[in-house]
Design a protein around this nucleic acid. Sequence first.
DNA 1: ATTACTAGGTGACGAGTAT
DNA 2: TATACTCGTCACCTAGTAA
Lengths: 255, 255
Amino acid sequence: MKFYNSMIMIIKKSKNLDEIHSLAPDFVGEKEWFFLYWIAYIKLINRGRISTPELCKIIPISQQTISRRILELEEKKYLNRSAGSRGGDLELTPKAYVHLENVFQNLQHVFSSKSCVEQFHGKLKTGMGEGAHYIKKKNYLKQFKSELGFEPYFGTLNVQVNPDMYEFLNKQLKNFKQTIIQGFENGSRTYGDVVCYFVTIWSENKPDDKVPGALLLIQRTSHKPFVCEFIADECLRDYFPIEDDDEVFFEFRKC
Amino acid sequence: MKFYNSMIMIIKKSKNLDEIHSLAPDFVGEKEWFFLYWIAYIKLINRGRISTPELCKIIPISQQTISRRILELEEKKYLNRSAGSRGGDLELTPKAYVHLENVFQNLQHVFSSKSCVEQFHGKLKTGMGEGAHYIKKKNYLKQFKSELGFEPYFGTLNVQVNPDMYEFLNKQLKNFKQTIIQGFENGSRTYGDVVCYFVTIWSENKPDDKVPGALLLIQRTSHKPFVCEFIADECLRDYFPIEDDDEVFFEFRKC
DNA sequence: ATTACTAGGTGACGAGTAT
DNA sequence: TATACTCGTCACCTAGTAA
């Protein structure tokens, strides 16, 4: 239980108002925390005085509420307004930074634990055959076999994931096990490196039949955003079987 | 302006409700963000199913509101509840992690900018003379002179800062310029290393007369928490002059 | 211009309770 | 046990406006 304490800077509300004040005269709620966060961030880029109408343009609350919130937080010693009225220079106290830092540290834990999202999914789409074009090259093929442990089927499985998932996936990629297939030159054309991530793939049809494969990041292709290309040692379309717009699931294999 | 965008995941409210829904059907407010944050953190330590009454013990909101919030966030595709009712296993979607990560990244900016708090202050207190005891040792004295550029006055200035400031100061210390004075043995006793941070010190009396000095972290002393010991090349008590409980200000010299 | 007070309307919270 | 509904209350937010 004490483990949770650092996370919760908001003491559980009680029916008795006096009790709140004796327990937490400097109570900070969600809204107040965000206000401090906004101010801290704004101070990074805009040092100096900011008026409440200016803040109002940036922060999604009204000028009146901003004014009230500043007064409250000043009262509770989270803010100092060095200059008098007329665009006073807001400053967060160390007390405020301690609150921001608590959340920051917890978020560090969240994002440093690699597997905060374990499964990804998307819809099967028909690719342009670009991926297949690459895979067929003997030079790549040899490396696939040695690096991935299988000789891939001559075609890629194109899975379109939603933008948020794609964004998150991209940011998390660095945490996952990868291998790089070296590029090469073939007369006139240059074939770039291919980054492969080790994944397992499955479909709704056979949720317990997870097939090992690889997610490819072909460096030089202009592959559409939000589409991931996968390879495996057989034709997954036939294996599962699946068709366009069917849901495809995948997860990264542990390092 | 576009610089601000990543910070604001809460679209400014509008009078027209329809407008909100067309602009941001998946609006996440402060409370909702914190809810996702709490769930993310709880999932780190307690993988598996959690019931709403259990969450209620941890999160400072009622079971009813937790239930309602889960439904809302499920509706907006921030949460998935894999199992049916009866303690369903909550899971954040990548969309939710993107929101958490935005705030996380902004906090990284806040805390990586070294000088988010520039000035510290506290009240002058009379020390136990422990600091002075150390400074008098010739072995330390020599090093102070070479490392700090001055021969310190035979006594430390003890400044008591409030707990929040002390906590924040401690966490931020690693960002500041320091030098280590090597410890030594003197027959029976061992004198530990002393970490010195380069600071400037001033008082309310002479706000423009900032005196260079050093903040000492004497490794082996059991110096009271929340008290910082400073040295300078003269007796600061007489120089300013200041007495017990007077406010003393200090800031770290830039690297 | 700015800050901040008052007043009024609304949305959110939690108690009680059905399922 | 659990989840989630209804409903009364209240806190909070914004508009208007004073200073």
